[in-house]
Amino acid sequence: MCHLYLHKYELETTIVPELPKFALIKQYIIDNIRAARWLENERVPSENELADQFNVSRMTARRALSELTEAGILTRSQGLGTFVASFKSQSSLLEIRNIADEVNARNGKYSCTVLTLELIAAVAPIAIALGVEADAPVYRSVIVHNENEQPLQVEERFVNPQLAPEYLDQNFELTTPHEYLSQVAPLTEARHTVEAVMPSREVCQWLGLYNEEPCLQMIRRTWSAKGIVSFARLISPGSKYRLGGHLTFKQRS
């Protein structure tokens, strides 16, 4: 089975000559972040600078920056450049709801299909996102959430075993990962990144998409009082899912 995240990064723990140039650029950036040579919110080299440094095309440099941005390691600002993402917790403006509760609130019938539950070694981007050492053991799950027996969302989640040691022992057909983690490591803060993406062939298969259509992708990291609990990617068909929320602002006195 192809990992949504790991198939992109499984070769990055060691730089070898056989690696393609975009992967070498990614590893170079990750190494500088891990060594604290580039700090949070610090600007990283531009596409042109990386292209000159590694003697590659701008497209190759752009791919490296884009994939690290997708993984939440970097953040890009139009007209300003690319920066090291903040790895500190950030309060969420979106209410985080259990997807089973969302479906039930619409009078739908919730179910799920568990595709993967496993222990893996954290490659660099996952290790950074969870705040653990590279190659440290982490839990990984891939679950398809259904509404009225129709696929609604693919969830790939990486979990810190120190904060949820019995994660792999759970029956996620009876409780969702969000619900379980909220019990054993109560959520205090979260960070979201939301964007439109075109799904891979494998994701299309899981979501039952016979024609490619844009999907809504949410990258989410969650914190408890003891640290980063999980790092997840949630992908939903654009025609079936939307985000919404309600904000209340204090009146000025």
Rank of each mutant, 00 (worst) to 15 (best):
139 Y>F: 15
83 F>P: 03
136 A>C: 00
147 E>Q: 14
117 L>S: 10
76 R>H: 09
71 A>F: 04
65 L>N: 11
120 I>P: 15
130 L>K: 07
113 T>R: 13
45 P>Y: 05
55 N>P: 02
125 P>I: 12
67 E>R: 03
55 N>F: 11
62 R>P: 07
141 S>V: 00
87 F>W: 00
114 V>L: 08
57 S>A: 13
139 Y>T: 05
80 L>F: 03
139 Y>S: 13
164 A>W: 03
139 Y>G: 02
129 A>I: 02
120 I>S: 12
154 V>A: 09
90 Q>V: 13
80 L>A: 07
90 Q>K: 15
82 T>D: 13
47 E>L: 05
90 Q>M: 15
58 R>H: 11
130 L>Y: 02
67 E>L: 12
170 Q>V: 12
72 G>V: 03
83 F>Y: 14
156 E>P: 02
76 R>F: 09
114 V>N: 14
139 Y>A: 09
121 A>F: 08
109 K>G: 01
167 Y>I: 06
74 L>Y: 15
44 V>L: 06
136 A>L: 07
85 A>H: 09
169 D>C: 00
44 V>W: 08
88 K>G: 06
55 N>E: 13
146 N>A: 00
92 S>I: 13
109 K>C: 03
90 Q>G: 08
53 Q>F: 13
114 V>M: 11
125 P>Q: 09
102 E>H: 05
171 N>I: 03
134 A>L: 13
70 E>Y: 12
61 A>C: 05
142 V>F: 02
49 E>R: 02
163 L>Q: 07
152 L>M: 10
106 R>L: 13
52 D>L: 07
54 F>K: 00
135 D>G: 04
121 A>L: 10
164 A>E: 08
153 Q>K: 05
119 L>P: 00
100 A>L: 01
169 D>A: 14
59 M>H: 10
134 A>Q: 14
67 E>A: 01
142 V>L: 11
151 P>N: 07
100 A>I: 01
171 N>W: 09
144 V>D: 02
154 V>Q: 11
87 F>L: 08
48 N>I: 11
111 S>E: 02
